[in-house]
């Protein structure tokens, strides 16, 4: 195995992750300093800088929403995936897969329309929509990841006297982790983008300037929100990519 050839793109990915993270933080903190630039780019637009709320606050609120919804999606999704791959829960597998799939086919806007009358405006209905929307990739990948563990490996684990719990914790989860994390990665990335629509029901997110820009026909607002959401998604994606590599045990995986 040629380590040199492998480590090269990996280290350039790390440089990309670091530089984009720095760019993201700089934009979040210093977007307001770019007001002259936006005024020059959009001379006819007044105001050309979204100033009703600081971008730092919007970003933190956005992250909080994504973090909480992802935590719920991941815990529920992994638990459901584990349950249906145990002997006791195997018969529920089709049911759980279907439910998770329905959760994702439901447009988040429709979920908002249903949840708002029940739970009111703001954070909670957005959270519900994001949790439902982010569940499918986690459930699917948990089931798929556990399915990739070779049956001989499991037989060897049993034959060497491991209990069901020991097999799950020491063998199945570590070996399935890369695929599970890939599912979490998709779920989180989707939710970073989808969280913006929470602003239509009053949740504070990076979607707020985008919605305001769309409603008020203000292109600079849309650009300012969209650039941050896009950058946030790319940085998160790159970070997950690195996390996944830690759990690859096949060829070229654990060489580090």
């Amino acid at each position: 195995m040629n380590v040199g050839a492998l480590s090269r793109p990996r280290s350039s990915r790390r440089a990309l992750l670091i530089s984009l993270s720095v760019l993201l933080i700089a934009l979040v903190v210093g977007m307001e300093q770019l007001a002259p630039l936006f005024r020059a780019l959009f001379p006819d637009q007044d105001p050309a800088m979204y100033e009703r709320e600081s971008f730092l606050n919007l970003t933190l609120a956005h992250l909080a929403l994504v973090l909480v919804s992802s935590l719920v999606s991941v815990s529920v999704g992994v638990a459901a995936g584990l349950f249906v791959t145990r002997p006791a829960g195997r018969e529920f597998e089709p049911l759980v897969s279907t439910l998770a799939a329905i959760g994702q086919t439901f447009p988040p806007a429709a979920v908002l329309a249903i949840v708002v009358p029940v739970a009111g405006f703001g954070f909670v209905p957005t959270l519900v929509a994001l949790v439902l929307y982010g569940l499918l990739p986690v459930v699917q990948n948990t089931i798929a990841g556990l399915g990739t563990v070779p049956s001989q490996t499991l037989e060897a684990a049993r034959g060497n006297g491991m209990s069901a719990w020991q097999i799950l914790w020491r063998i199945e989860l570590p070996l399935a982790m890369r695929v599970i994390i890939a599912g979490v990665r998709v779920s989180v990335i989707i939710n970073i983008g989808t969280a913006t629509i929470g602003s239509t029901v009053g949740a504070k997110t990076l979607g707020t300037p985008i919605i305001a820009g769309l409603v008020g026909n203000n292109l600079p607002y849309v650009v300012q929100g969209a650039v941050l959401v896009g950058l946030l998604a790319i940085v998160t994606d790159l970070a997950f990519e690195r996390l996944e590599q830690r759990f690859s045990f096949g060829e070229g995986g654990n060489a580090e």
Partner: peptide, 20 residues
């Protein structure tokens, strides 16, 4: 069963090694 199996060696084809 677990106690029994820890007292009996068990070997299968090499794919039975824990890859991680």
């Amino acid at each position: 069963p677990e106690r029994l199996r820890r007292r009996i060696g068990y070997a299968i084809q090499s794919i039975g090694l824990f890859p991680h």
